[in-house]
Amino acid sequence: MKNVAIILLLAAVILGFSGPTETITVKGSDTMVILAQRWAELYMQKNPGVVIQVTGGGSGTGISGLINGTTDICNASRPMKPSEKSKLKQRYNSLGVEIKTAKDGLSIYVNEKNPVQEFSLAQLRGIYTGKITNWKEIGGPDQRIILYGRENNSGTYVYFRDNVMMGDDYSSTMQSMPGTAAVVNAVAKDEFGIGYGGAAYGKGIREAKVKVDEKSPAYAPTEENVKSGNYPIARYLYLYVRSRPSGAIKDYIDWILSPEGQSIVKKVGYFPVR
């Protein structure tokens, strides 16, 4: 009985001295979800007192979560829109703090059997607005182009529309997929399909080269080309927090930007910013 009491007392002391668990919620970009999970797994291994919960849903969903107070950190594959900053200002009197964590070459996926090797930005704009509908118009077979893209809560969807399509609307024939992996999967199965998404997901399909215009050289979305700025549709991947970070959130973000955190970026297939 005495031993039991001593064990219970020791257990109480040990539990009493063990610090409280900090929980950090991370929500947003599907493009970044694997990267965010890898960061979280490694960080939790090294910091057992911290629990990091990562979910996707798209950049728009993450930013809404930041505004509604349902997430601590938002992952976004596009910058916040002025209207979103305005909502954050109204509710929290804060613009939101933007942290660039990685760089990504937005890849153009085609099926491995597709002979088309490269696209100009004007061609991509024509394809996705529905003005170019047949592969033969850009040197491919006489077959209809099947468009795959993302849903409108996706940062990749918004980035592609704003920077490649110059704000034009997507063709109504585009099939909206719930994640980048679904786009890759669809293009891998569809000989005449085309899709777009993060470089990290480019497995099982071919990533086409992209050029600014017909006269420019075309570049593949490699680290060298993305970092040098030669690849024309490169973008940053962001973290957003409501106010300047402090406490456990600051420690986590500092670690993400450390050499160790940035090495994960490279392992997942994106390009480090530091």
Binding site: K89, Y92, N93, S94, L95, R242, S243, R244, S246
Partner: peptide, 12 residues
């Protein structure tokens, strides 16, 4: 004017 007033949070 909007600014952070740490450790409390945003202020305007």
């Amino acid at each position: 004017l909007y600014a952070d007033f740490l450790p409390f949070g945003g202020s305007s």
